[in-house]
Amino acid sequence: MMSRPLIELRGLSKRYGVGDGVVLALEHVSLNIERGEFVAIMGPSGSGKSTLMNILGCLDRPTEGTYRLDGEDVGSLDKAQLALLRNRRLGFVFQSYNLLGRTSALHNVMLPMLYDRQRPRTPEARLALAGTMLDLVGLTARGHHQPHELSGGQQQRVAIARALVNDPSLILADEPTGNLDSRSGEEIMALLHGLHAAGRTIVMVTHEAALASRADRVLTMHDGRVQADVANGASVEKTIAGAAA
């Protein structure tokens, strides 16, 4: 028995501009991502991988095509519903961490809970859960530190704790190690692999082939199209046509 894939993209296109100045950022992308997959997206800049991430993250809408997340057609949702969807089902990890400045690690981790209208929690419960998440990423003692008092690697751990706190279906990591030295980067990758091992679905954009090679599956983007969709290890290579079927 096959359950529905977590992500279904069908004929997804994104155009910017009008008339002769139209730029095709994405062209007829169709693919599925199953629950529990760790997918790496590679490609040169301008290949459309950021646009794809933004659409997957419900921060942007496609010009054409459909995007189903958990079976729900995202295209039919308004801004408030998209916000709720980001809040409940998505966790973002950015290259530049994007923590709130002058705000403690604990409060940063609590942020998504504050916007979770469907599961209102008491301040104590929020604090406790945020503490648990910081434990999970190994920052137990740093809860009251502000971002500028933390190293890059520590900030990214806080960001991961924040991404996890509302128990999302999908974690979107946009070059999570891009600003880190190799050792901190390695620690962050270990953390992400740990989450994957625990059953999380992760989509990660990266420039580094070495990092991509450790994912289950590597999508290579070029000129707005998925040029290659390769499964690592024992998995068989899938074709674009296969995903579209």
């Binding site: 993250g57 408030a80 916000a83 973002f92 994007n98 998504p112 916007y115 924040r162």
Partner: peptide, 12 residues
């Protein structure tokens, strides 16, 4: 932007 990414709606 950060607040929007983690789920703040326009009315929030």
């Amino acid at each position: 932007g950060i607040r929007q990414a983690v789920g703040a709606s326009p009315s929030d």
